[in-house]
Nucleic acid binder design. Structure first.
Lengths: 630, 630
DNA sequence: TAATGAGGTCACAAGGTCAG
DNA sequence: CTGACCTTGTGACCTCATTA
């Protein structure tokens, strides 16, 4: 993924705005300088601006947020993100594109040679904008990992040719993303046993970031860092599991991985067993939770109040965090350790490397940028697109919302999104993102739309990735054409997530637990602006849970949901249909065996399918609304 | 987005000079200095402050004592108040302007993950400075509600532009206040429980940020609201249970369907028979066609060319015309004579009139919608709304698209439409309305949008009316509440039509027969602009027809489609669910009886349900697109 | 000369403390 | 427990050195 390489993650901003800083680089500077301190720099508010405007300056402006500052590093409308935390970068600091915060943090760290106190967790905290201040040790480690170093400093203006190159790369990266659902692709490919070998190997997002660079990357800087260092941030994500297979990064593609699903057919045979296993291996939330039934551990709360669900929530949150950003190998490892016995993290190239390349952040590439690659780094991968800026007028929004195109797309569009959202504005001007897949319904008001989305996408990225992993392990899935694999995932991921996270909705208590760990009563969420979608989700969860299915049955059901021949855009309908039939047969057999006297249970389960479709659609509408309002 | 704005409540302090400028922050100093001990805090003690003081600023009232400290967050003389309790805020803590007390309280709460003991009242205590310590549970809840979160922390100095913005907003807020107290009034009344101890207090600023949002949501509301506090939300839920009770609408329950509870049951008994009969009686197209299988009579056409289907088409067309616009009794009558024996509709008030008025499409004007409405014609009734013009800028479009409003609506919106459309513009400037329920894909270019829609609606109105008629005859349907009957029809009519008219799509020949009687090849339609929706419709038709169901089975299936408990907005979910279960049982029985060696057929049929949902949604999108483009 | 980043500055908030 | 005060960091802005 992460293309890391590129070093930086990029985001598209728009170009037009009136805002202040004109021009790419933000001249904000000047302005400020002119004005001098008192004023602020790019203040737009100031009178000053006007003049600019009058001048007919481009006004680039980056809407973005936070950084809004002039100090945003922007090239041709593309905003570079901090390799450490993903915030908007203010420039190339210590050899890496970084935000003011990480720059200052790193400076203080090296200047004073501070020894931060030990990480309270696994020393593999994922570093994101919102949590970057929670663990200094890990933040510093991340800085080093992405290649920050006093030795990498580059002074003076950027050489033209480099700028040019960077620009081109970014552009193409964006284009790729726009054009192909890279992410899904990458995800799939990454693993896919066969064909895939393609490209860049592993990993990552095919789209753009291209791995290769990685090497080159090295040169620059970071190399110094540890081997692991994978290029960029990206790595972080990958970590995912794959218990067994550890892939060797670079070189050999996927030795190990081979085993997975082997054939489809075979698969069907032992379908049940393998599916269940796949489910367990790819559903961390579940694992951590201890039991699939959510209620189990959470403390019950009387309706109407939110409560912090200590463990569970925290754990989940943490997990998400880890999986996401950490690029470092260990991170990955770490992620594993929980569910695996493997000795992991021994080292970047450690023997363990999981086969899944996507994760291979390990490569040393050291300084992404150094090599010139502009890629968006962070984008960790598959779903990175989420973070990519898009040209949509609405502002930043998952690029894929577009790729669909017309009608047909609609379906795809809607479904393509990973998490289940429900962005809403409460009565007042306070905004909420009422999706339990978000860490919390509250949105940092100081964030730009982009920032909000980015943060949000971070929260559900791991879950989406798990779904992809799960799919890949469904016997027969990888025998489908890549196109169809992608189509099915685009269309069905949301539904799978709804099933997997149905437990977040506690019908009895009338509460919803967010991934951040906090429980909110339905009333509270309604007060914040939740509408019927919430009700429908609750209803679905109730209907599903009421059936009392076992994990095995549930995983098979999930499979049936995902492998639906009637999804739009399927090329080889017959294959998908055949596969689904097989899966259904198994499901039916399993259910009739386990629930002898509840003859209607299988039928009832099938009736959840249309319900899921409806949810999927309502969800799409929510997303659309978000986009529009944004 | 975030307007977030200030987010805090503000209080006006001094007015004076803008100057204060620098003031922003702490000028608290001055005040403090004046007031009391110079204590430290304001360490830096900038000299600057002094000036302010010297200016003789009013120092507002900083009511609370507390405030005395320098830690008051003040901007340009405006003091920000704590969003939680209304005390003077000391800063922006955990994403919200809060006082030291609430900041500390929140910190302890999350750090130690404290579970406070249950509120002794309604869990909706109003949190104010003076009573904030009385109920921890409610205080914490309020903290969360206003958005306090670890994820929202903001470090470092406030970005200038943001400060600027905040200032402006506050200023305007103040102005608003000044100008019309009315607002204040209302605001206060609305929220403030009492007199409001201290002014600025909670109630917030009318101006904009108003905290009330919050309150309204809960807080304030809380106070005012009922104990349960649940604003509207709950309701939805309640309904749930009560399976049996089918409420009799007005007076006389149901003449015909009489036996209520049994209703469903009984219905089930003879369900099959009556449903089939109902189907035949209410599906004219079918009758005329001679046989359900379309291909039968139509002359096959080689793909690519359209051809006029003489008889059939004409007849249908004619019939449609009649039924449509005329709401007049005879129209209706006329329609009947052909296929029915029933005396029914002899007149509006015919003996048969089902008690359910909404359905009375039969009645002449009765149509609820018709009255008063200038509507274009037909409003035949239940679905008339479709035709109601709406104020939307897009021109005429089914009014219902609006009535829904937000999210929730979406579902309804989408489904509510009766015919299946696919309005598209072909490549050129020629417009087409590619819906087989239209008489022809061609649109009279000289017609206005309104005219086009009107004409189109004419074509499918009768079919919609028939669906309503059919529904009324489903055993148990009329025992449902009127609300639910309407909801089910709004949501399911399109799906029923898709099933009924699946025969218009000839998969083998790859042609689509429009109600006008002309057949068009898929290629032709594509050339005219049809997209994936067409493909999906073809696929569905194929999947459905392939099952080779009898008319009896098909009618029962239609029933199952219509009576779906998971449709949004259903009040008495249990009743609907019970009814659907009964119907499904019959359907299953029937199918297993008729197709002994095709065990999977029932399952396959159920898999059409999600497919129908998807079509329904795609259709909604088409409609929306039509509306937007219009 | 202009673009650009290292470093410095200091407004600001998280957390810790401890008297009340 | 609460919350006024402190301490410790953070990071938005600035200045100034460095390089194209």
């Amino acid at each position: 993924m992460e293309s890391t390489k590129a070093g930086g993650v990029i985001a598209y901003i728009s170009s037009s705005s009136p805002e202040s800083c004109h021009s790419d680089s933000n001249d904000c500077y000047n302005s400020s300088s002119l004005t001098h301190n008192s004023s602020h720099s790019c203040r737009q508010g100031n009178v000053v601006d006007t003049p600019l405007t009058m001048l007919g300056l481009p006004l680039a402006h980056t809407t973005s947020k936070t950084s809004a500052k002039c100090s945003i590093t922007k090239i041709n409308g593309l905003v570079l993100l901090c390799k450490v935390c993903g915030d908007i970068a203010s420039g190339f600091h210590y050899g890496v594109h970084a935000c003011e915060g990480c720059k200052g943090f790193f400076r203080r760290s090296i200047q004073q040679n501070i020894q931060y106190k030990k990480c309270l967790k696994n020393e593999s905290c994922a570093i994101m904008r919102i949590n970057r201040n929670r663990c200094q040790q890990c933040r510093f480690k991340k800085c080093l990992l992405v290649g920050m170093s006093k030795d990498s400093v580059r002074f003076g203006r950027i050489p033209k040719r480099e700028k040019q190159r960077m620009l081109l790369e970014m552009q193409s990266a964006v284009n790729n993303m726009m054009n192909n659902n890279s992410q899904l692709h990458s995800q799939l490919h990454g693993n896919t046993p066969l064909p895939l070998a393609n490209q860049p190997q592993v990993p990552a997002c095919p789209g753009e970031p291209r791995p290769q660079d990685v090497d080159s990357g090295l040169g620059s800087a970071s190399s110094s860092t540890s081997p692991t260092a994978s290029p960029g941030s990206n790595q972080s994500e990958e970590p995912k599991h794959h218990p067994e297979s550890a892939v060797a990064m670079d070189t050999s593609p996927s030795p190990i991985s081979a085993s997975p699903s082997s054939g489809s057919d075979r698969g069907s045979e032992d379908g049940i067993g393998s599916v269940t296993r796949a489910h367990q291996e790819t559903f961390m939330y579940n694992q951590k939770q201890g039991s699939p039934s959510p209620q189990s551990d959470a403390q019950q709360t009387s309706p109407g109040e939110e409560q912090h669900v200590s463990d569970t929530g925290k754990r989940i949150e943490e997990r998400n965090r880890n999986q996401q950003n950490d690029l470092s190998p260990f991170t990955a490892t770490q992620a594993h350790d929980q569910a695996q016995e493997r000795p992991t993290n021994t080292g970047p190239q450690g023997p363990d490397r999981h086969h899944c390349q996507e994760n291979d952040t390990t490569t040393p590439s050291h300084c992404p940028y150094s090599r010139g690659t502009p890629t968006p780094t962070q984008n960790q991968c598959p779903y990175s697109r989420d973070r990519l800026p898009n040209s949509s007028p609405s502002g930043y929004f998952p690029a894929y919302t577009h790729h669909g195109g017309n009608n047909s797309t609609s379906q795809a569009t809607s479904n393509s999104h990973g998490g289940f959202t429900g962005p809403l504005w409460s009565g007042g001007n306070r905004m909420h993102l009422l999706c339990p897949m978000n860490t919390s319904p509250h949105v940092n008001p100081h964030k730009s739309g982009h920032g909000i989305w980015e943060e949000f996408s971070h929260s559900f990225t791991p879950a989406v990735r798990e779904v992809v992993e799960f799919a890949k392990q469904i016997p027969g899935f990888s025998d489908l054409s890549q196109h169809d694999q992608v189509s099915l995932l685009k269309a069905g991921t949301f539904e799978v997530l709804v099933i997997r996270f149905a437990s977040l909705f506690d019908v009895k208590d009338r509460t919803v637990t967010f991934l951040g760990g906090t429980k909110y009563s339905v009333e509270t969420l309604r007060a914040m602006g939740a509408g019927d979608f919430l009700t429908s989700m609750m209803d679905f969860s109730e209907n599903l849970m009421r059936l009392g299915l076992s994990e095995e049955e549930m995983s098979l059901f999930t499979t049936v949901v995902l492998i639906s021949a009637d999804r739009s855009g399927i090329e080889n309908v017959n294959s998908v249909e055949a596969l689904q039939e097989t899966l259904i047969r198994h499901l039916k057999g399993l259910i009739t065996k386990n629930h002898t006297n509840e003859s209607a249970i299988f039928t009832k389960l099938l009736l959840r399918l249309p319900e899921l479709r409806s949810l999927n659609n309502m969800h799409s509408e929510q997303l659309l609304a978000f986009k529009v309002h944004h």
